[in-house]
Amino acid sequence: MPRSPSASLLLTRDRASLSQFARFCVVGTSGFVVSLVTFALLLERTGIDYRAADALAFLVAVANNFVWNRRWTFATARAGAVGQASRFLVVSVMATALSLAILTGLVAALHADAIAAQAAATIAVTPLSFMGNRRWAFAAGSRPRQRPHRKREPAGGD
């Protein structure tokens, strides 16, 4: 039985979305590595407090992730980088806060292993972070599209 054009479009969209999500996960993994290396270097080379090192490492990883998501995952290297970066930072902070809440709940309430809980929290938040970035931070034009207003000519009139 041949596929309808709409079914083909849906399958193509789903494959494209899965591919985009996979790229998002690769970028996120690279951000984790960048964060960990930055954190370790700051602790070893500067001797700053681990909380300050964590905050700086987070910002470096966010910058890394923004660049790669903008260029590769969402391919939106158009004008508006400052707005996209601002929205990306908002999504990243919200995802981190939600991940911390899940981590805290798993460890404090359920007495889960902290490393397993961290992994579970990250996995739980990743699809939400992806959607926030896809639909808001890197959305086409990043603003609701407005249709141009056209005057309608009266039917049959001069």
Results as ranks from 00 to 15, higher is better:
Arg147His: 04
Leu89Trp: 14
Pro144Ala: 15
Ala114Phe: 00
Ser129Ile: 03
Arg147Trp: 06
His111Phe: 04
Gln20Thr: 13
His149Ala: 06
Ala7Glu: 13
Ser35Phe: 12
Met1Asp: 12
Arg78Trp: 00
Ala16Leu: 15
Val82Glu: 08
Met131Phe: 15
Ala108His: 12
Ala120Arg: 02
Ala75Phe: 04
Phe130Leu: 06
Val33Pro: 00
Ala112Trp: 12
Ala117Gln: 10
Arg87Tyr: 07
Leu56Thr: 07
Ala85Thr: 05
Thr96Pro: 12
Arg45Pro: 07
Phe58Glu: 15
Phe138Arg: 00
Glu153Tyr: 04
Ser30Glu: 06
Ser129Ala: 11
Met131Val: 13
Asp54Cys: 03
Gln20Glu: 15
Ser129Lys: 09
His111Glu: 13
Gly31Ser: 06
Ala114Leu: 04
Ser19Gly: 15
Leu110Cys: 12
Ala55Met: 13
Leu89Arg: 11
Ala101Pro: 01
Thr12Ala: 05
Leu36Gln: 06
Ala119Leu: 13
Pro5Leu: 09
Ala120His: 00
Arg13Gln: 08
Leu11Asp: 15
Arg71Gly: 14
Ala52Asn: 11
Val90Asp: 01
Leu56Pro: 06
Phe39Arg: 11
Ser86Thr: 11
Gly132Cys: 06
Leu43Tyr: 05
Trp136Phe: 14
Thr122Gln: 06
Leu89Thr: 10
Trp72Gly: 08
Val67His: 02
Thr29His: 06
Ala114Arg: 09
Ala75Arg: 14
Gly141Phe: 02
Arg152Cys: 13
Leu36Glu: 10
Arg135Gly: 10
Gly156His: 07
Thr73Ser: 09
Asn64Met: 05
Pro5His: 10
Ala108Cys: 03
Ala112Gly: 11
Thr76Lys: 09
Asp158Val: 09
Leu106Glu: 12
Ile123Asp: 01
Ile102Tyr: 00
Arg45Ser: 06
Tyr50Thr: 08
Phe130Cys: 07
Arg13Pro: 00
Ser4Gln: 12
Ser4Ile: 02
Arg70Met: 03
Ala79Val: 02
Asn69Asp: 10
Gly80Val: 05
Gly28Asn: 07
Ser19Phe: 03
Ser86Glu: 01
Gly47Thr: 10
Arg145Ile: 00
Val62Cys: 12
Asp49Thr: 03
Ala116Lys: 07
Ser142Leu: 03
Leu98Tyr: 01
Phe88Tyr: 14
Arg70Tyr: 11
Gly156Ala: 12
Arg152Thr: 14
Arg143Asn: 08
Val90Glu: 01
